[in-house]
């Protein structure tokens, strides 16, 4: 089973992700912000990470940069969860090392399709 690490400071969004992903047959690990995400990542080997951008303590972009600094984590696909779909913000996410993005609010099928496009 593929495991997804989801990082979002919103309980609502975490729950929606969890339900959608579990219904699609993925295992889910949840984190509440970037710092929590880094900690959860250290104890697991997710196939894909889905992270929010705007979060307290450590935002999504910093999280991605942090993860990418560790060579062991370079190959983990990271999808950015965002309501911000304009090119500039995507570019910033990409520059940080994001693999792709999902626009909120997401459609369950599209979410799964996006994961399949990045998950080995």
């Amino acid at each position: 089973m593929k495991t997804i690490l989801t990082i979002d400071d919103s309980r609502t969004m975490r729950e929606m992700l969890r339900r959608t992903l579990q219904d699609a047959g993925f295992g889910v690990i949840q984190a509440e912000d970037g710092v929590d995400g880094v900690e959860k990542l250290a104890g697991s080997q997710p196939n894909v990470i889905i992270t929010d951008v705007n979060m307290p303590r450590m935002d999504g972009l910093t999280f991605i940069e942090t993860v990418r600094k560790d060579p062991a984590n370079r190959g983990i696909p990271i999808l950015v969860l965002t309501t911000e779909s304009d090119a500039e913000k995507k570019a910033r996410a990409k520059n940080a090392g994001a693999t792709g993005w999902i626009v909120k609010p997401f459609d369950p099928e599209k979410l799964v399709a996006a994961i399949n496009r990045v998950a080995a």
Partner: peptide, 27 residues
Amino acid sequence: APAARKPVEAEAGPKDAGEAGDDKKAG
């Protein structure tokens, strides 16, 4: 596997993450 899962740079580790979090001193 050009994505290079092999260690290349050693200076960065999970500890950076913790520090980055502290730096934010978000309360």
